[in-house]
Design a protein around this nucleic acid. Structure first.
Lengths: 143, 143
DNA sequence: GCTATTACTTGACAAAGTCAAGTGTATTAC
DNA sequence: GTAATACACTTGACTTTGTCAAGTAATAGC
């Protein structure tokens, strides 16, 4: 394996870290931190969501997550109910307000991505996506 | 522009955020935070480096950067000298120790990337890189 | 039923990042 | 030339974000 190859992959990683950083700046204007946004995303996109399931999706300290969820409850964004099957688990459901806030965040993320690619032709946009998905397939295969 | 396209790009972004997150965990074992590592990288890879130049490479609070540099000086990783041309600027140079520490960090990053792709064939590795570089070209063009 | 494990919570703390005012140097406008 | 302005960086005060470990309550394994 050449160092050249690795260096260039790392260069891409720095580049893409910046891209993600730019996109994440939207959170500065929102009510949410980046991590809170990610948590809300999982809550709104996971069947029978629980803290346990969220922690399977990405690395986050248990206590920190607990506090974020607590904060969401206080803001009226989610409801927690004890799971009927297993009393240690809490089932987490977004409230109507939670769904609305998530939809807002979602739209603003969509707008940003749209801006990011608006100057590309349709062909180029399709090419971009197909390359992304190929990268993902390769990296997942390599795990 | 279809929503489907945007959704799938966002899905890639979440995926790649996790990849970068995994790679960044190496910093937990090192003497540096992620941001410090990035700053040290720029110092070791920029001609006539200054705080101003670092801030052109990525978004970082001026005061925060100043403190990181101060910390590096105290650790003996860098030397700051007033620029002869413009007394407002400080020229930042890594010391021998700074270069060594950076080399360590660098090697451990290289190892991680090597691990990440070791199960791919040479052809697949080359394909991965070429797709990354095409993505970068497209996104830079679109700016 | 006793022990161990699991899911989550809480307290204390540290790290990371932000904001605004402050210092010294350079540039611009007259 | 000098007064006003801009620039590069520093410092103080602060908030946000994240971590660690001990604690509570429920379940699982024997």
């Amino acid at each position: 394996m050449t160092l050249e190859l690795i260096d260039r992959i790392r260069s891409f990683n720095r580049f893409y870290t910046n891209i993600i950083g730019l996109l994440d700046q939207q959170y500065l204007d929102s009510l949410f931190s980046l991590t809170e946004g990610r948590v809300l995303y999982e809550i709104c996109n996971t069947e029978d969501c629980s803290a346990k399931k969220i922690r399977k999706r990405f690395v986050i300290d248990e206590g920190y997550l607990s506090r974020i969820l607590d904060h969401f409850v206080k803001q009226g964004l989610i409801k927690k109910t004890r799971s009927p099957n297993d009393g240690r688990l809490w089932t987490i459901m977004p409230t109507e307000k939670g769904k609305r806030e998530f939809a807002k965040l979602n739209e603003s993320s969509n707008r940003l991505i749209a801006q990011m690619i608006e100057r590309l032709s349709e062909e180029e946009q399709a090419e971009l996506l197909s390359k992304m998905e190929r990268i993902r397939a390769l990296l997942e295969k390599a795990r």
